[in-house]
Design a protein around this nucleic acid. Sequence first.
DNA 1: AAATTATTTTAGGCAAATCTAAATTTTATT
DNA 2: AATAAAATTTAGATTTGCCTAAAATAATTT
Lengths: 221, 221
Amino acid sequence: MSANFSVSEENYIKAIYHIQQSVDTVSTNALAEQLKTKPASVTDMLKKLKTKKLLHYEPYQGVRLTAEGRKLALGIVRKHRLWEFFLVEKLQFGWDEVHEVAEELEHISSKKLIDKLDAYLDFPRFDPHGDPIPDSSGRMAAQQQINLIDLPLNTPAEVCSVGSQSAELLELLTHKQISIGTRLEVKKQFGFDHSIEIRVKNQPAFTISQQLAQVLFVKRV
Amino acid sequence: MSANFSVSEENYIKAIYHIQQSVDTVSTNALAEQLKTKPASVTDMLKKLKTKKLLHYEPYQGVRLTAEGRKLALGIVRKHRLWEFFLVEKLQFGWDEVHEVAEELEHISSKKLIDKLDAYLDFPRFDPHGDPIPDSSGRMAAQQQINLIDLPLNTPAEVCSVGSQSAELLELLTHKQISIGTRLEVKKQFGFDHSIEIRVKNQPAFTISQQLAQVLFVKRV
DNA sequence: AAATTATTTTAGGCAAATCTAAATTTTATT
DNA sequence: AATAAAATTTAGATTTGCCTAAAATAATTT
Ligand SMILES: [Mn+2]
Ligand SMILES: [Mn+2]
Ligand SMILES: [Mn+2]
Ligand SMILES: [Mn+2]
């Protein structure tokens, strides 16, 4: 029961899982880009993971996780998000500095460890970026985040994650005084450049670009 | 600054450090046994670690850590013991089930993580087995444990670790009602078979074999 | 439909970490 | 000192995960 997979294999499975959230079938190139590796290396790994029955793969046809592959992916996502929660809630990390560390911690194999950590943290349902945490049987709450672009007018919402951690984005967010937890609503949408006008608390409304809105994720409050 | 070492390299460095606690220079065979690998593999790795200046090695001469190697070893030992403390104190693991998990956790690379964990745990000085935890600059308390064989007569002491976790040993300890934290003193030593008579609390004294005494470590209280 | 372009796979190679078997060196014993 | 035994190293393979360059296939454009 429950084989042991390498860090590389786990990273592939998790990446496929994430890409499958938006497309049905995952291409070799998409995986190579996500994993910062080359398409030829991806093909090699796909052949191996197929023999391990973690995914469906036919040459040139792209790839989809099997039920078993999805189960493995959910286990890794669970570990990743629980560790992120731990780092922020207990160790006082900032939400923008936990990802890389969790990228390593998610590969610690002990199931007992992660279940005890879950209990210690009091079974959190969302990680510091607002993403739902699968429970020990792989179930999780529906994604509550939507892109700021898709938030209807005059609907109060709260920023719960950002789609990038680049220094340039963080600089802009700092200047605009937007951070995780900021309450806002959209007052106007401009079709010409897809910029939107938002209002934070009772301050005067201001405009943000399409590019910025696209990396902001919010949930209704 | 501060290069990045593989899990394998780190395990070798830590093993050499531990063996050097009892002998000055570490043999290829001793390392192979400790790491459950073959002497030929050890030789390969020693050549590599030598080029990385972590140890002094001349063919057939055995091996000793350099200052840099020792520093790396202390960092790994620090991580191992802090994680063990975390697992026992926060996650309610038993002291006898933390070693394997810590064996993985000790290779998580973030220095910030380990320093924040240290602070969160309130800078513990000893791990659940009574072994001292190096601080962030590599300093640690002197080893306070001594072998039960070496405890003088009529000196109150407390069991703080056992030299093995075999099921057979644990069965015997359970039967004798000895566990981590048990207070005892040695009442008699028998030269013939090196068995010793000990007394736990106010119960009647009883005898334990040399083999058992040799795997029990205590500190004076 | 043919040609061009993009995607994906194959072929061949490399570095890390391991192994077995054979050769070498050191240590212990006669 | 010579021999036997033990420890260690070398030689040659293997597996994993990655790479580049070339070939094959699929998708798009003319
Ligand atoms: Mn990872
Ligand atoms: Mn997250
Ligand atoms: Mn280890
Ligand atoms: Mn310990």
